[in-house]
């Protein structure tokens, strides 16, 4: 079922891409394709049977897909060198602060609204 699954996944991306460009949306095609796929999966259960095995295989290698862009660091080394302190402090502090505050906010609001975790 590799080819049908792939064809369907690419079709959703393609439709997302067309909508994004036609309506000048700030969201890129793949994200719209993802939204469309969520809707389609809820309406057509058969679709999940075809797509799921291939999707899970691809998702296992999600991190690999970032390597080519990441290697681009070799052509940005001079800018990074010139501003290394501003860049590293900014990225490090904002990431730590935002993950910490985001997670705490989730827990606090979940407690307030009575929607604690199931386990």
């Amino acid at each position: 079922m590799l080819v049908p699954a792939f064809a369907i996944i690419l079709l959703f991306q393609l439709v997302g891409e067309v909508i994004s460009r036609a309506l000048h949306l700030p969201l890129p095609g793949p994200v719209l394709g993802m939204v469309g796929m969520v809707v389609a999966l809820s309406m057509i259960p058969k679709l999940g049977e075809i797509v799921t095995p291939v999707a899970q295989g691809l998702l296992r290698y999600l991190a690999l897909m970032f390597v080519p862009v990441g290697v681009g660091i070799v052509s940005s080394l001079s800018t990074i060198e010139a501003h290394w302190l501003a860049i590293s402090a900014s990225l490090f502090l904002s990431t730590i602060a935002a993950i910490g505050l985001g997670a705490l906010t989730f827990v606090w609001v979940a407690r307030l609204t009575g929607g604690e975790a199931d386990e």
């Binding site: 792939f6 996944i9 690419l10 959703f12 991306q13 997302g16 095609g29 793949p30 994200v31 394709g33 993802m34 939204v35 469309g36 796929m37 969520v38 999966l41 809820s42 999940g48 797509v51 799921t52 291939v54 999707a55 899970q56 691809l58 998702l59 290698y61 999600l62 690999l64 897909m65 970032f66 390597v67 080519p68 862009v69 290697v71 681009g72 070799v74 052509s75």
Partner: peptide, 27 residues
């Protein structure tokens, strides 16, 4: 990097389909 990316773009391209695939766990 341009020469490198000519080859690596096939992996890079998969970012799009894999984003669509996130719909499965989400749904």
């Amino acid at each position: 990097y341009e020469t490198y990316f000519d080859g690596a773009q096939f992996v890079h391209f998969m970012l799009g389909p894999v984003t669509v695939c996130l719909a499965i766990p989400l749904q």
